[in-house]
């Protein structure tokens, strides 16, 4: 018996769901929410380090997405588009609370490699705690680049910073994590 491949069909029908949501179908939008909520919330939680604030950010991300859905280009990735909104929302929430830290751009430094390898396997929770203890700017860059796989350019654009600044933040994150986790960059 042939098994169905829901993963493939999901990709095929996401565009149709977006179209239906654009026409005002909240049920279609709910399905998109169910599909993407975990990743959006994961990003918000890692950026805010606050469960209540992360839930607020997730909610606001999807409300903003609903309002801006007409401007979404269906050829691009819905997941990336939602992440951009989530980053904007999380940064705005943080700015309300305090000034954004300033980081000196270091464009001459080499960018860290894409793979962040641990010398010995570690518990997920321990790593999450170590990431959570990083300064905000370094954490943002690390989360977008090392965890969610965005390029330096994409991560910098999402964060509204120069690419060199993003690379500098990644260096900082690597240095701090290396001290705490015996991290090496492959």
């Amino acid at each position: 018996m042939t098994h169905a491949e829901p993963q493939e069909s999901r990709v095929d029908w996401e565009g149709a769901l977006v179209q239906r949501a654009r026409s005002g179908d909240t049920r279609a939008f709910e399905r998109l929410y169910r599909e993407h909520a975990g990743r959006v919330h994961g990003l918000c939680l890692r950026m805010t380090r606050d469960a209540a604030l992360a839930e607020d950010c997730t909610q606001e991300t999807f409300v903003n997405a609903w309002r801006a859905l007409a401007r979404f280009e269906t050829r691009s990735s819905l997941s990336t588009w939602l992440h951009r909104i989530a980053v904007n929302v999380a940064l705005a929430k943080r700015r309300k609370n305090r000034d954004v830290e300033q980081v000196v751009e270091s464009p001459d430094e080499d960018a860290p490699a894409a793979e962040w390898i641990l010398e010995t396997p570690m518990e997920v929770q321990d790593i999450e705690i170590a990431i959570g203890e990083l300064p905000e700017g370094a954490r943002d860059a690390l989360v977008l680049h090392a965890l969610y796989g965005y390029s330096h350019e994409e991560a910098a654009r999402m964060l509204g910073i120069a690419e060199g600044t993003c690379k500098a933040q990644l260096h900082r994150a690597r240095r701090l994590l290396r001290d705490r986790l015996d991290l090496e960059v492959a």
């Binding site: 975990g38 919330h41 793979e115 962040w116 390898i117 396997p121 570690m122 997920v124």
Partner: peptide, 15 residues
């Protein structure tokens, strides 16, 4: 769970 790289961390965390 243990992981060997940051890329292995789960991207999705359900609310």
């Amino acid at each position: 769970d243990k992981v060997k790289s940051l890329g292995e961390l789960p991207r999705a965390i359900e609310p």
